[in-house]
């Protein structure tokens, strides 16, 4: 994905999400009564913040803590 492509993709996402928010305001009948069911566009926050939380948690905390070299478990290339 070159940077030009990236820009196009961002614009497409923005348009799709904007249309979905309008559709949500006009046509949706939420089943739940909590804030995240009734507030239009809550899932935008959820997707963006949740996505960052997962990526950063996995890449910045899990990976340095748990990743080792491929031969960590004695190589595995031969039978003992």
């Amino acid at each position: 994905m070159r940077s030009l492509n990236k820009k196009k993709i961002y614009i497409i996402i923005a348009i799709v999400v904007a249309v979905s928010v309008v559709a949500e305001i006009l046509f949706a009948h939420p089943h739940g009564h909590n804030l995240w069911h009734t507030m239009p566009g809550f899932d935008i926050i959820m997707g963006f913040v949740g996505g960052w939380i997962l990526i950063l948690f996995a890449k910045q905390i899990l990976a340095p803590l748990l990743q080792r070299n491929e031969d960590y478990y004695d190589g595995g290339d031969g039978d003992e």
Binding site: M1, K6, I9, Y10, I13, V16, V17, S20, V21, E24, G41, D43, I44, M46, G47, F48, G50, G51, W52, I55, K59, L62, A63, L66, Q67, R68, N69, E70, Y72, Y73
Partner: peptide, 27 residues
């Protein structure tokens, strides 16, 4: 689902240069 998953693409693309997995195993 359109909102949730559409927007989730953004962090991935912003962080793309770091997303490639490394030649390592995970404990």
């Amino acid at each position: 689902y359109i909102q949730l998953l559409g927007v989730a693409m953004v962090p991935f693309m912003m962080y793309l240069s770091h997303m490639e997995p490394h030649e390592q195993l995970t404990l």
